[in-house]
């Protein structure tokens, strides 16, 4: 009887702690996703501005070089470009927004910045695109900074919240 009670209490405590850790982990995941997105967009800029590769080739190159966090994003865009013959790149970008939201845990404002890339890419001349890239990279950098601040305050709080709620439940149930 006591062993059963003890093991159940341990399960409750571990579950609460894990919930707290996962909830806190969401914030660091967002930061990581944003950083790798930033990195990949910088690569895209080099591909387009410096090497002047055509878009599908450029995106394929990035997909091969980028980290695992956003690998799937470019894979989807590539698939969509092959599949979708309307020629509008924005549509291809739009299909990734679900993935960005659910798996990369980005916020709507981050996704909007990324999608705005799809609107301008491959549509204007090189000089204009360069400016746009600069603007988007700047915006993403600011978002990363913001996400870092949010992570610092929230991650610790959710972790200690999970542990303390677990402890409280044990004390009430004992």
């Amino acid at each position: 009887m006591i062993a059963l009670k003890l093991s159940l209490l341990t399960i409750i405590f571990v579950a609460c702690t894990l919930i707290g850790f996962f909830y806190g982990g969401r914030y660091s995941k967002r930061v990581l996703s944003l950083i790798s997105l930033h990195e990949s967009i910088r690569l895209l800029e080099t591909e387009i501005i410096v090497f002047s590769n055509p878009l599908p080739l450029a995106i394929e190159n990035i997909r091969n070089r980028t980290s695992a966090h956003v690998y799937k994003v470019y894979e989807r865009i590539l698939n969509e470009i092959e599949f979708d013959q309307s020629g509008d790149l924005y549509n291809s970008f739009l299909t990734t927004s679900d993935y960005l939201k659910e798996t990369c845990l980005l916020k709507q404002e981050d996704i909007d910045v990324f999608l705005s890339l799809g609107k301008i890419i491959g549509k204007t001349n090189r000089k204009d695109q360069k400016q746009h890239f600069k603007y988007i990279l700047n915006e993403l950098g600011q978002l990363i900074e913001q996400a870092r601040v949010e992570k610092n305050t929230n991650e610790k709080m959710y972790r200690s919240l999970g542990i303390l709620v677990g402890l409280g439940m044990i004390i009430i149930l004992i």
């Binding site: 305050t153 929230n154 610790k156 709080m157 200690s160 919240l161 303390l164 709620v165 402890l167 409280g168 004390i171």
Partner: peptide, 14 residues
């Protein structure tokens, strides 16, 4: 425990 929770939540501005 509520005292500690209070401190933690207050530090993160809630």
């Amino acid at each position: 425990i509520t005292a500690i929770l209070h401190i933690v939540l207050e530090k993160s501005g809630r």
